[in-house]
């Protein structure tokens, strides 16, 4: 499965080549459009900055106080049974509720263990294959005025669980 690392190297350049090439062939003002779009990116980042400050401070406090270690020590007997790193349990759970809170926990793992460590890679894969279930469901169903969501939650939990299990398997296979 190591070939996936080489494929990873190709994904971004290939997409760039394809999009820019497509734009050239269709005679789009590619550079002007790029500049316009890049400005939007600034707005996106600035919009999440306050949230990120708030949550990173909270996670920073939890880490420095030792509370995060207490939680993962407490969970270790159970997670060892499931072959899942206890340090990643908080991320997996929080990610279902709030994306920015999960992000702060991920950054904490990067700081503690490094992004290229086993845990760092696994959490990166996990973040890219799971979504914020409860938040998304609330926003979408609220918009449709739906009260009975039937099998939606079950399906969402199932896909999220698949994402988490596959992150563990893929990290073990690829790296």
């Amino acid at each position: 499965m190591r070939f996936l690392i080489y494929i990873s190297d190709y994904i971004i350049p290939f997409l760039l080549f394809y999009i820019i090439g497509f734009g050239l062939l269709n005679k789009t003002n590619i550079f002007d459009e790029f500049i316009q779009g890049a400005k939007d990116g600034f707005k996106v980042v600035l919009d999440i900055l306050p949230t990120l400050i708030g949550l990173m401070v909270a996670i920073g406090i939890l880490r420095a106080s030792g509370a995060l270690n207490i939680v993962s020590d407490f969970l270790r007997p159970l997670t060892n049974l499931l072959h899942f790193p206890s340090q990643l349990v908080p991320v997996a759970i929080i990610k279902m509720f709030s994306s920015s809170a999960a992000t702060s926990l991920v950054l904490d793992i990067f700081k503690e263990y490094g992004p290229d460590s086993y845990l760092g890679r696994m959490v990166s894969v996990m973040m890219s294959s799971t979504e914020t279930i409860f938040y998304t469901l609330a926003v979408y169903f609220m918009a449709a005025g739906v009260k009975k969501t039937r099998y939606t939650l079950l399906g969402c939990l199932l896909t999220t669980l698949t994402g988490i299990i596959m992150s563990v398997i893929m990290t073990k296979l690829v790296f």
Partner: peptide
Amino acid sequence: YGSVNPAEILGAGLVATICS
């Protein structure tokens, strides 16, 4: 946070998300 190759997880992530 100083990854040597930040994009190296793309392939593994893609397989995981395709499965889910």
